[in-house]
Write a protein that binds this DNA or RNA. Structure first.
Lengths: 342, 342
DNA sequence: CTGAAAGCGCTTACAG
DNA sequence: CTGAAAGCGCTTACAG
């Protein structure tokens, strides 16, 4: 940072005014071709780079979008981030990332640091704690500062802003129906991400499907760090559970591992569908059938919406996108009627 | 961004000077307690937040670090990024992320945008293309602009800067020796990330171990999108390959899937160790034994080094950290002498 | 075609 | 204890 050459210094060396240098560098037609050439040559020679801080201050915008996600390790968020970053880069925007670690406090801190004129807008997927406690005071700060907000995946109806997500309940209902159609009689819902909006929706969809089908319900919430193996065994053996819808990829993998380790066969004894398609689903044996949430697509759309909002291309009222999802049939379900992909 | 309240406006409302407001907000002892109180109350009421762009311009620093990684989807980079972000947040720094997608051009673009006064320093892991072609002109720009650089994991000796990585060749040698000790006779090295510095080092270590052991060598480079199943089968069946060291997690998983699908048993017929410990290694059946590269630790250390450099706490000459790694023994190796973890 | 001046929002040495 | 002034590096209306 020290000793970087500035317009002022360039102007001094060239014996012209700062304005002239600035205009020449910006290819203003006001400046004669010869001067432009001279200026550019000297600038290149000295590795001149404009100071964006100064430009931003002057222009009152940063072309930078803040992104706050709960975690980066789950494949869904890594992929969504990838979508956000690549779209941003296409549109000439930069991205600042903060990770809330599922905590309200960290989320609030991130909002505060980003909001200080550092970013033109904020894209967020809410932390588990925020959704569980329904505390949204820290989010209010965003609108107080007139910074546009786009929520994706984990959204909250109470907040008025643009939203990008999938229809989780509908998808869960359809996935459950697929399990019934494939011959399952008793289906359970396993969740390791309770207290999130997406879990609520997925559970709702599952319950809806089970009710419509006149079957009995069974919801198991567990801690990702401590899978209830014994409970799963009992369910399969004593309650004849033969199908499971899992709330996320890791949950589905844990269910499968536990079942296989206990000697059950997949999909012969137990069919499994997991939400969130990721790399583990693809490579596990048997490969897991999943609801593909199009993480990257959600990210790209969220970023695009943000930019359109910033650039005033959107009507004032918030817009909400509900992406279509699809079920990827692999080896953990036994539906012969459906053509398995891979 | 529009209509955000500024010091000037606050000063007008309070009938004091801008300097007074600024000092009061910064708790300067120059200002009387009453004034400080008045100013702060009005500031809070109006949701005043200082404009960092202006602060940065004035202070000539941003407390922001740019990070350029080749990809975010591999668990190693997601985890390293997590380490970088969390350490940054501890130290009161922000992080701007760019993804080079393994391309020199994208890497160069990212450097250019970040270098414009946006960041105090740059942390990078180089793209595959940069390492393969050994093109480092775009990296020179960083030192031209006196922006400090820390390289991690995928480093290049030709570049003089602080570095954080593991001793890949030593680790590969040791991992190969472990395979020999567990009873393997013919070990192959499989790589899906050829042309990276880490791959070169790992291959070198493997070759060293094989030579020391007087065994025959076999190196297979493949495209991650197109695993050579037939070749693997032939190697195991006809050449009696009974151990494989894989250059990265995905490569190791692909090897295992292919072998299992062809009816070979792991670890009875084939032992596998993979570089890079990740979530797939842990959850695959059988769980994969890996060389743990301590991704998060590398990230944290890289960030810490960057901050120390920025804050002038380091001697002028570049420093190089070589992290200790460890081998995590799981189920894909059959060494009875070693106590399996998990 | 070129330049002087004002201003973006802040901080800080200096004067009073 | 308070304020006027300069300056960080840029852009841009305005004058010449």
């Amino acid at each position: 940072m020290e000793n970087r050459i500035t317009l002022k210094e360039l102007a001094r060396l060239l014996n012209v005014s700062i304005s002239t240098v600035s205009k020449a560098l910006n290819d203003s037609p006001e400046i004669s071709p010869q001067t432009r050439k001279r200026v550019k040559e000297l600038a290149a020679l000295n590795h001149y780079v404009p100071n964006v801080m100064a430009q931003n201050l002057k222009n009152q915008k940063t072309r930078t979008i803040g992104v706050i996600i709960p975690d980066i390790l789950p494949h869904f968020f890594a992929e969504a981030l990838h979508g956000i970053e690549s779209k941003a880069s296409e549109l000439g925007y930069r991205v600042i990332i903060c990770i809330s670690n599922e905590s309200i406090q960290k989320e609030a801190e991130s909002i505060n640091t980003l909001i200080k004129g550092q970013v033109d807008g904020l894209i967020m997927s809410l932390s588990q704690e925020t959704q569980a406690k329904m505390e949204i005071d820290h989010l209010k700060a965003i609108s107080n500062h007139k910074v546009p907000l786009v929520l994706f995946d984990r959204v909250l109806n109470q907040i008025e802003c643009d939203k990008v997500h999938i229809n989780d309940s509908l998808q869960a209902e359809q996935a459950t129906m697929e399990l019934f159609k494939s011959g399952c009689k008793k289906i359970a819902y396993f969740s390791g991400i309770s207290d999130t909006s997406v879990d609520d929706e997925r559970k709702k969809g599952y319950l809806e499907a089970v009710r419509n089908h006149g079957a009995s319900r069974k919801v198991v919430n567990f801690d990702q760090k401590n899978f209830p193996d014994q409970k799963l065994q009992d369910l399969i053996r004593n309650k004849n559970i033969d199908g499971i819808l899992a709330s996320d990829e890791l949950g589905a993998i844990l269910v499968m591992k536990s079942a296989l380790d206990s000697g059950f066969r997949i999909p012969e004894d137990l069919s499994v569908i997991g939400f969130t398609n990721g790399i583990m689903s693809e490579h596990f044996r048997p490969a897991l059938s999943t609801v593909d949430q199009h993480a990257e697509e959600q990210g790209r759309l969220a970023l695009e919406t943000m930019v359109d909002r910033i650039e005033g291309k959107l009507p004032p009222e918030p817009i909400e996108y509900r992406l279509e999802t699809s079920i990827i049939h692999r080896k953990s379900t036994r539906n012969k009627a459906l053509q398995p992909a891979d």
